[in-house]
Nucleic acid binder design. Structure first.
Length: 474
RNA sequence: GGCCCCAUCGUCUAACGGUUAGGACACCACUCUUUCAAGGUGGGAACAGGGGUUCGACUCCCCUUGGGGCUACCA
């Protein structure tokens, strides 16, 4: 058994979709697991919609996820001569024929069939054209496409995730393999490339199941052995429908911008439609490779659950040292227009990351501690203020007074805690009733590091200023 | 319409003929911490329906229902 060769073949007509990323990931995991070769092929034969920008973004997205390719990127557009040659070999062998029907004629027939609610199938009239008629049209320069002679036989394969899938050739069209301008149609190009690249396993989306019998027909006509096919399920939005813009972010770049870590994204995507069995959830790249197998792939389509992704990201955030978080956080702060003023942010990041789910969230919290103008009451904080009513104000006033009376030298975690405990005790309040208003006034949130530490992070003057400002605003 | 694929908690999933159908996210309680989060404990929550096969079906077969994909001189 020679080493497997797999490929990921996106078309650069859009950004790297999470579904595409997951397909790429499965191919990559399979290659790494089996010691195989991962080929990247850009299917840019749709000239109208393909752009270099999209290609760049797709490559960047893969790199971000840590998906490295061993060969390529190859560009399908560069191989049209071979695609055409393969199609013409089929013509010469009588496995394909020239079709002189125009697009307009075919569209009319299709519309007619539509009206009768019956299935449109090309009637294969050009297949029966006498040779001299063909010659005559050729001489007249009538444009033609090449169509495959669809054999009336079973076109089946043992899918690595679905088991046996079978189609009947008679249900399929003599589909076009070469356009009238000589350019190849998708299925022709794919098969030609997969043969030329000696691809052994085609791991791709479920939506290609219906292309597979057509491709098998081409393999047979070309006298080539088809690869192993593994059709992985689709990823849907929360409503069970195909993931689209209205479901929110669908491009991996958007998750990168959102502050999702590549390791978390990779882990999450791997578990969408695949399971190692058992209860494992947080898996390192190493474990993923070790455990991966096509048998573990689910047949059913999956719903993309952003909440769980963010939870998982939070798990990764916790284990990541502040040193590694610093650069992305600084970048985000810059985007937000917050100047760290040379402060070492790592201690702040360290306390804040345990309470965060995304890098964006970390940066937000750092910003709030650095810059009073970033303080905004969130929903829960707002509820708390309303719920406590006058008590909120009163508690804040007592605390502010006690804190202001503290000498600057006492502005450290221990003395601050002692002072606040004293305030609570003196007024018969629970410590939380004193702490929580301070937390809200300082950060706008009900969640933060312990308040005495928060006061130190924000600093004496700034803390007192925020407490005062909050009371005036309220 | 035709062809094909799919079906376990709201979501991701485990189970590969014998389990009180397990875990995770989310949600709700309680708990720990004289403050937050995290943590800990507990709770509600699923085998789409109907027929078979079998001593025994979530697991195998068939039908129904419900989702999805494809049906181009797009990829």
């Amino acid at each position: 058994m020679t080493a497997p060769r797999v490929r990921f073949a996106p078309s650069p007509t859009g950004y790297l979709h999470v579904g595409g990323a997951r397909t790429a990931l499965f191919n990559w995991l399979f290659a790494r697991k089996t010691g195989g070769v991962f080929v990247l092929r850009i299917e840019d034969t749709d000239r109208e919609r393909s752009t270099d920008e999209h290609t760049r973004v797709i490559l960047e997205g893969l790199a971000w996820l840590g998906i490295t390719w061993d060969e390529g990127p190859y560009f399908q557009g560069a191989a049209v001569d071979r695609h055409r040659a393969d199609a013409e070999r089929l013509l010469a062998a009588g496995k394909a024929y020239r079709c002189f029907c125009t697009k307009e004629e075919l569209d009319a027939q299709r519309a007619e069939a539509e009206r009768h609610k019956s299935a449109f199938r090309y009637d294969r009239r050009c297949r029966r054209l006498p040779p001299d008629e063909v010659r005559a049209r050729l001489e007249r320069g009538v444009p033609f496409t090449l169509r495959l002679v669809m054999p009336d036989e079973e076109l089946a394969w043992d899918d690595a995730v679905h088991g046996r899938i079978s189609f009947q050739g008679r249900d399929l069209d003599d589909f076009v393999i070469l356009r009238s301008d000589g350019s190849p149609i998708y299925n022709m190009a794919v098969v030609s490339d997969d043969i030329a690249m000696r691809i052994t396993h085609v791991i791709r989306g479920d939506d290609h199941i219906s292309n597979t019998p057509k491709q098998i027909a081409i393999y047979r006509a070309l006298g080539a052995e088809p690869p192993v096919f593994a059709h992985v399920p689709m990823i849907n939005g929360p409503d069970g429908k195909k993931l689209s813009k209205r479901h929110g972010a669908t491009a991996v770049g958007e998750y990168q911008d959102k502050g999702i870590l590549p390791a978390a994204m990779r882990n999450f995507l791997a578990l969408l439609g695949w399971s190692p069995g058992g209860d494992r959830e947080i898996l390192s790249e190493r474990e993923l490779i070790e455990l991966f197998s096509l048998e573990g792939i689910q047949k059913k389509s999956a719903v993309f659950d952003v909440t769980k992704l963010e939870w998982m990201n939070g798990e990764y955030l916790k284990t990541l040292p502040a040193d590694e978080l610093l650069p992305p956080v600084l970048r985000q702060l810059e985007r937000m227009g917050v100047d760290p003023r040379g402060r070492d942010l790592r201690p702040i990041i360290d306390t804040v990351k345990a309470r965060s789910r995304t890098i964006l969230h970390v940066a937000d919290q750092v910003a709030v501690r650095l810059d009073a103008s970033r303080v905004r009451l969130d929903e829960k904080a707002d509820q708390l203020v309303r719920k406590m009513g006058d008590g909120f104000e009163a508690s804040l006033a007592l605390a502010a007074e006690a804190l202001a009376a503290l000498p600057p030298s006492a502005w450290a975690p221990e003395p601050l805690l002692a002072a606040l405990q004293e305030v609570a005790a003196r007024h018969g309040k629970k410590l939380g009733d004193v702490m929580q208003p301070i937390r809200v006034a300082l950060t706008g949130s009900t969640v933060s590091e312990p308040v005495n530490e928060l006061l130190v992070v924000v600093g004496r003057d700034e803390s007192l200023a925020r407490l005062g400002a909050f009371r005036r605003a309220a």
